[in-house]
């Protein structure tokens, strides 16, 4: 019983971290603060993956998102934005209509999820998911794996070509 309540408490703490970090990411005036809150949110999502027994994905999340993507964002912020003038307007003139649209969207999602019966399987979570994921990656999903490696190569070359000074 204490285990169940511990799971609940961890879930709500992580959810609070994710939602608060997300709200501060989209609403912070200083773009660097946005990036730091984005890192916080991504770490909390990694914690959520641990709660869902996806340990390999949590490690990948920390390595790629927090290590690479967020650092890329911070580089972009440093290279393009003057952070001293944070008194500029940071949202466009569609903020209130967008808020209404997002509210309707969220209400729609909550209404749809409220009593949808999902076919939940009462099973223990698999323990050693990394081994199974590696096997799947080399057998069943080998074609998407190769395609995604080609996509990464194309993105690498494309980014160099686009950002090159000519």
């Amino acid at each position: 019983m204490t285990d169940v309540s511990l799971t609940s408490v961890t879930f709500y703490i992580l959810s609070f971290c994710i939602i608060a970090g997300g709200i501060f990411t989209v609403s912070s005036r200083n773009l660097f603060h946005s990036a730091v809150f984005l890192v916080f949110t991504l770490f909390s999502v990694a914690g959520m993956f641990v709660m869902l027994n996806a340990y390999l994905l949590a490690a990948i999340q920390v390595l790629i998102y927090v290590g690479a993507v967020a650092m890329l964002m911070i580089f972009g912020v440093m290279l393009t934005t003057q952070l001293t003038n944070v008194r500029l307007r940071h949202v466009n003139e569609q903020a209130w209509p967008a808020l209404a649209v997002c509210g309707f969207f969220l209400a729609f999602i909550v209404y749809g999820l409220w009593d949808t019966p999902f076919q939940v399987v009462k099973a223990d979570a698999p323990v050693n998911t990394s081994h199974a994921l590696g096997t799947l990656l080399m057998t069943k999903y080998v074609l998407p794996f190769e395609v995604v490696s080609l996509l990464l190569l194309a993105a690498l070359v494309g980014a160099v070509v686009i950002a090159k000074k000519d």
Binding site: Q61, A68, L72, G76, V148, L152, A155, I162
Partner: peptide
């Protein structure tokens, strides 16, 4: 996650 990393790279460029 991989596609998001590629997207972020190209978008930053």
């Amino acid at each position: 996650i991989v596609v998001a990393a590629a997207e972020a790279t190209v978008a930053l460029a």
